[in-house]
Amino acid sequence: MNVSLFSWVVILLAVIAANLPFFNQQLFALVPLNKADKYIKPIWIRLLELLVLYFLVGLIAYFLETSIGNAFPQGWQFYAITACLFLVLAYPGYVLRYLRKRHG
């Protein structure tokens, strides 16, 4: 596979992972937290999921980069920028979960 395809795979994976905590009420979309009908996952669990998924996407991207060739060393600036980008990618899910006005 080529580098361009790997780049798009990582971007698509980041978009899905960034919005995953906001579109369901389960932990990592797999583990049900409570059996109640109207259980709403607290924001701190969603943010913790977001942090774990950020590192998971970063790990997958690192493995894809090493499969292409040598992995480049990154400084703190790289991680600060990618964390901010991950938060920007999570914004649509946040808006739909918390800022959208529900009628009825």
Rank of each mutant, 00 (worst) to 15 (best):
Q74P: 00
I81W: 12
L48R: 00
L13E: 00
Q77C: 07
Q77K: 11
Y94W: 13
L13F: 00
P21K: 01
Y54P: 04
R46T: 03
L27R: 02
A90D: 00
G69Y: 03
C84D: 08
A29F: 05
A71H: 13
L53W: 05
N34C: 15
L56W: 07
N24P: 08
F72L: 10
L33K: 05
A14V: 11
F63K: 07
F63C: 08
L33R: 03
V31L: 13
V52W: 00
L64V: 04
V31I: 15
Q74G: 02
Y98D: 02
V10N: 06
I68P: 05
Q25L: 06
L27A: 03
L85E: 11
K35D: 08
V10M: 03
R46E: 02
I43M: 13
A90E: 01
A36I: 05
Q74S: 13
I11V: 14
L51S: 11
T82D: 01
A71F: 10
L30W: 11
L13Y: 00
S67H: 10
K41H: 06
I40H: 15
G75D: 11
K41R: 14
L20S: 09
N70W: 08
A14M: 10
Q26I: 04
Y94M: 14
Q77R: 12
A36D: 15
G93V: 00
W8R: 14
L33F: 00
N34P: 06
P73C: 05
F86L: 08
V52T: 02
A18Q: 08
L85G: 15
L30G: 06
F55M: 07
V95Y: 04
A29C: 09
L53A: 01
L13Q: 02
L33C: 05
Q77N: 12
I11C: 09
G69P: 08
